[in-house]
Simulated scan of single mutants.
Amino acid sequence: MATPGNSSLYNIDTGILKENACVILVKTEWNAAIVDALEAGCKKIFDTYKIRYQTLVVPGAVELPFAIKRHWERNKETAAAPDAFIALGCVIKGDTPHFEYVCDSVTQGVLQLNLLLPVPTIFGVLTVNTEEQARERIGGIHGHKGAEAAITALKMIHS
């Protein structure tokens, strides 16, 4: 089980952080209350470390990889080129196989982005059976997955 106590993720010993680092958060409209909390966790970490960020919104989780790739393509040779992306979403299992298709699509999409782009894309998508499980991951017994995604982005930028 992934709990805050069985990882050294929260130990940020990256040395000197990159000045003017920028992270693009790409979040979904589905399950907005959960996703907004994930975003807030990211922002708290970025504010602490003075990291610039911007949020883009897409309809659902399947659209996350496309929006990230399009943003990169439009900005890669400009001053607005980000140092990392974070895909934020929450997919809650229902009664149909749709859950598995969506989760697999977004997971494979983020994997492809990490192999294709020269900057990291962090997987900040909750894939849970219930809303209660999602809430446990936005500051509950399983920590705050938004904050963890932001810390992961910082570590990947500075590795």
Rank of each mutant, 00 (worst) to 15 (best):
A81I: 03
V91I: 13
I122Q: 03
R74W: 00
Y49A: 09
L38P: 04
C103T: 15
W72I: 05
V62G: 04
V91L: 02
R135E: 06
A150S: 08
K44L: 05
Y53P: 02
C42V: 07
I141P: 08
A150P: 07
L64E: 09
G124Y: 02
I24G: 00
L9T: 01
K76H: 14
P120S: 07
K155F: 08
H71D: 15
A153P: 10
L111D: 14
F46P: 00
K93I: 10
V62P: 06
T78F: 01
H144G: 04
P118R: 12
E73K: 12
N129I: 10
S105L: 04
F123W: 09
L126K: 05
G143D: 04
E136D: 15
T127Y: 01
G89N: 03
S159R: 13
D104R: 15
T28C: 11
I45F: 12
L88C: 07
G94R: 10
T28I: 08
L117G: 14
W30S: 09
E131H: 12
N31K: 02
M1P: 14
T55M: 09
E148A: 10
E63R: 04
A147W: 01
G124W: 02
F85I: 00
L88M: 06
F66Y: 15
I12C: 09
I16A: 13
E73D: 14
